Amino acid sequence: MAFDLVQYFAEQIKIQKPQLLNQYSPDERRTYLLEINALTLGKLVSLWKQNENVVYQEIQRLDHLYVQEVARHLTTSPHNRSCLNKTELEQVIIELLEFQLKEIKQLDETGSFGQRGLRELILGQVEHLAGHADDWVWLTNDLKELKGSKTIEQEQISLDETMKEFNLMVNMQKEHTQAEPLALEPTAQLNPTWAKIFEPIVALVVLWILFEALQKVFA
């Protein structure tokens, strides 16, 4: 397995480039630098695949114009989704890409890698880059084989929380049902039972009163 340049560069950038993007919060700065670190190193990998002779020569001579050209290509790519504005992004890419090329040259000189050794080192970074950035980074630097390598972290919901949500939903449904007006069916007006019992008695009393009144009239 090749030496992990991804983590190595990230640590060296933290130590050697404290002024870079220091206008942002620590979390934002860390996110941007890790993102651009993956963007530029990934671009070196894809450029090496296209023509390793050219890239090896550029590592040896560190041509600023070459770095500018690569940075402009990354910045203007239609796949670029960086939150940084294009001017700021291009400047950071130039600085990090030049830093990476210098570090690789130093590693080459220290370890006597040669072109063959650097081939193994640089192409081996694909494995280390996997999962370190969103898909737009891999589409921008032409490392399409890494698309989808970043795992999407999903919030794990406990069974207890799920049951609470379910119970809340049930209670809300009950309250909604109780709040609805009940349709009242028309009911026939019922006469009380005692009224039916006393109807004949009342009639007899009325007749008796009428009878008494007639007797007084004809007396």
Rank of each mutant, 00 (worst) to 15 (best):
114 G>T: 10
31 T>S: 11
204 L>P: 01
109 E>V: 07
202 V>N: 08
102 K>L: 12
186 P>L: 03
87 T>F: 10
25 S>C: 02
75 T>A: 06
127 E>A: 14
76 T>V: 08
17 K>L: 11
43 K>T: 01
213 A>T: 08
139 L>W: 07
184 L>P: 06
194 W>Q: 14
173 Q>D: 11
170 V>I: 15
41 L>V: 02
123 L>M: 15
108 D>H: 15
57 Q>M: 09
125 Q>T: 01
21 L>K: 03
134 D>L: 02
188 A>R: 08
40 T>R: 02
157 I>L: 12
87 T>E: 13
50 Q>M: 07
219 A>Q: 11
155 E>N: 10
115 Q>N: 12
156 Q>M: 05
217 V>D: 10
70 V>N: 00
180 E>S: 05
159 L>S: 09
184 L>V: 15
219 A>T: 05
79 H>N: 08
66 Y>E: 04
207 L>Q: 14
7 Q>L: 10
15 I>R: 14
40 T>W: 01
175 E>S: 08
143 L>E: 00
94 I>R: 10
64 H>N: 08
204 L>M: 10
131 G>N: 09
157 I>S: 10
94 I>N: 15
146 L>I: 04
213 A>F: 11
139 L>Y: 08
151 T>K: 14
3 F>L: 13
82 S>K: 03
107 L>N: 07
17 K>P: 03
166 F>A: 09
34 L>C: 05
57 Q>K: 10
133 A>M: 02
167 N>D: 12
91 Q>S: 14
32 Y>A: 00
74 L>Q: 06
166 F>I: 12
162 T>C: 10
170 V>N: 10
160 D>M: 07
184 L>S: 14
176 H>L: 14
107 L>K: 12
150 K>I: 02
68 Q>D: 03
165 E>W: 09
16 Q>D: 15
12 Q>W: 04
147 K>H: 06
87 T>W: 09
36 I>Q: 05
9 F>W: 07
143 L>I: 00
9 F>K: 06
53 N>S: 15
93 I>K: 07
194 W>N: 11
84 L>Q: 05
97 L>R: 09
20 L>Q: 12
53 N>W: 07
176 H>P: 01
103 E>H: 04
215 Q>H: 09
50 Q>Y: 05
110 T>M: 12
172 M>A: 11
68 Q>C: 04
197 I>H: 13
191 N>F: 06
19 Q>S: 12
114 G>F: 05
207 L>G: 03
148 G>E: 05
99 F>V: 07
55 V>K: 01
166 F>L: 14
102 K>E: 15
38 A>H: 01
198 F>H: 08
182 L>P: 00
77 S>H: 06
218 F>P: 06
107 L>D: 02
216 K>F: 13
204 L>R: 11
200 P>E: 09
175 E>L: 09
47 L>K: 11
184 L>F: 12
201 I>L: 14
135 D>G: 01
100 Q>Y: 01
131 G>S: 05
139 L>I: 02
79 H>T: 00
215 Q>G: 04
98 E>T: 13
11 E>Q: 14
65 L>Y: 09
201 I>Y: 14
77 S>F: 03
148 G>P: 09
165 E>I: 10
194 W>R: 14
10 A>I: 11
162 T>I: 09
